[in-house]
Design a protein around this nucleic acid. Structure first.
Lengths: 210, 210
DNA sequence: GTCGTTTTTTACCATTTGGTAAAGGCACGA
DNA sequence: TCGTGCCTTTACCAAATGGTAAAAAACGAC
C-alpha cells in the first residue's frame, strides 16, 4: 500500500495520484464534499473505485490531499507581497494576481469556498498554522507602510479581507455573474479595471492633511 | 395532500411548514443540499421523516421552498435603494443594510452562497426573473446619478457586485474570519467601519475637475 | 359524543454509496 | 521463462438515505 510509503513513490504512483487529485478537484469543486461520490471521481480519473482506495485511504484522504496542495498555491500571491517594494504597487499587484487566480483557477477557489462555507471541518488546522501567521505578517507590513505615511490610513486586516472577498467572488459566484453579465470577456475586463480603480482610491498615498 | 392545495392551508399546516422550513434552512445552510439529510431536517423540526414528505413533495421541494422565501428578503435592501434620495447616502445605507443582514442572517447568506457555488441548479430561473431585472434597474439608477455628476464616475454593475462580495463575505467565510479575528465583537465593529469608509472613498461625489 | 377528514406514526423498501476481499494481470529482473 | 511484487479489476457488503404504504391517532363540524 503506497499511502503510508515513506519510500519514494514509483512513476505509476505519481502519475495516478496526480490523475486522482485532478479528477477530485473537478468533482469536489463542482459538488462539494458530500455531494461528490467516489464513483464520479473514479470515472473522471479513468480508473476503478477500488483503485482510488488503493492510492488514498478513502474519500476524506483524497479531499484533504487536494486541499493541502491547493493551500500552497493559494497563499503564494500574498507571500510575494514585498515589504521592500512600493506600497501601492505591491498591494495592487497582489489584487491583480488574485484576480488572475480567480479567472484561471476557479475550481480551486470554489473548492476552498465550499470548505470554508461548511465551517472548514477539514481545514481548520491549516487555517491556524498556514493562513493565520501569513495574514498577521502581512497585516504588520501594511501597518508599517501606513505608519510611514506611504499609504492612506486604513484597517490593514479588513483591507486584506476585502481583497479576498472581491477577487474570490468572481470565481465563487460565477453562476450568478454569468446571468448578470452575459458577455464573459467584457465582464472580466470590467472586473479587472474596477478592482484596480477601487483599491487605488482606497489606498491613495496619505495626503499630508492628516 | 396539502402540497397541491389551492385551498387555504389549515393552522396546523402553516405552523408545520414554517417549522420545516426553519429546520431546513438550518440544515441546508450548514451542509449544503446534498450534504443535508431528511432525517436531520426532521429531527431539527421535531417531527418524523414521513411527516416532512406529507407537507412537501420531497427533499428538493423543501429546498426550493426555502430558497424562494429567502429571495424576497434578500433583495429587499437593494429594492429599497431610492432614486430620489441622496446618492452617496442611499448607497452607503444599502451597504450597511447588507452588512446587517450578513450579521443577522448568516444562514440565509450561506444557503444562497452554497446554491450559487454549485452552479445555481435550483435557482437559475429566479436569478433571471428576480435578480437580474432588479440589478439592471439599480444599475441604471446609479448611472443616472453619475451622469448628473452626483457620484464619482465608476462602473455601476461592478460596484454592486463588489458590495455583494464584501458584505456577504463576512457571513459566508465566517469560519475563516473567526480564525483571523478571534474577538468577534471587535471584528464586526471593524468590519462595519471599514466597508463604510471604503465605499465612501470610492464614491466621493465627483470633484468638478472631471 | 360521532363520523369523516386531516395529521402522524410504524414498518418497510430500493437505491446509492463508501469501502473491502481476493483473485487476476502486468512489468521486470534473474 | 519464471517468479515476485506492484497494480487493477470483479464481485461483493453494510450502512445510509430518499421515499412509500397503511394503519393509528387527533381534530373538528355537527
Amino acid at each position: 500500500m503506497p499511502e503510508d510509503a515513506a519510500k519514494k513513490p514509483s512513476r505509476i504512483q505519481l502519475r495516478n495520484r496526480k490523475k486522482i487529485m485532478e479528477a477530485a478537484l473537478d468533482v469536489f469543486s463542482q459538488h462539494g464534499y458530500r455531494g461528490a461520490t467516489l464513483d464520479q471521481i473514479a470515472e473522471a480519473a479513468g480508473m476503478s473505485k477500488p483503485n482510488l482506495i488503493y492510492y488514498f485511504d478513502g474519500k476524506e484522504a483524497i479531499h484533504v490531499a487536494v486541499l493541502n496542495r491547493l493551500m500552497e498555491d493559494w497563499l503564494a500571491p500574498l507571500r510575494d507581497m514585498d515589504p521592500a517594494g512600493d506600497p501601492l504597487a505591491e498591494i495592487l499587484a497582489y489584487v491583480r494576481r488574485k484576480m488572475e487566480m480567480s479567472r484561471e483557477f476557479p475550481r480551486e477557489s470554489r473548492l476552498f469556498a465550499n470548505e470554508i462555507l461548511q465551517g472548514a471541518p477539514r481545514m481548520a488546522p491549516h487555517l491556524e498554522s498556514g493562513l493565520k501567521p501569513l495574514f498577521e505578517e502581512k497585516v504588520a507590513v501594511i501597518e508599517g507602510w501606513i505608519a510611514q505615511g506611504r499609504l492612506q490610513r486604513t484597517d490593514a486586516g479588513q483591507l486584506i479581507l476585502s481583497i479576498w472577498a472581491i477577487t474570490q467572488h468572481y470565481a465563487d459566484f460565477d453562476a450568478q455573474i454569468r446571468v448578470l453579465f452575459p458577455d464573459e470577456t467584457a465582464g472580466w475586463q470590467a472586473a479587472f479595471a474596477h478592482v484596480d480603480e477601487m483599491f487605488r482610491k482606497i489606498l491613495a498615498p496619505a495626503e499630508t492633511t492628516g
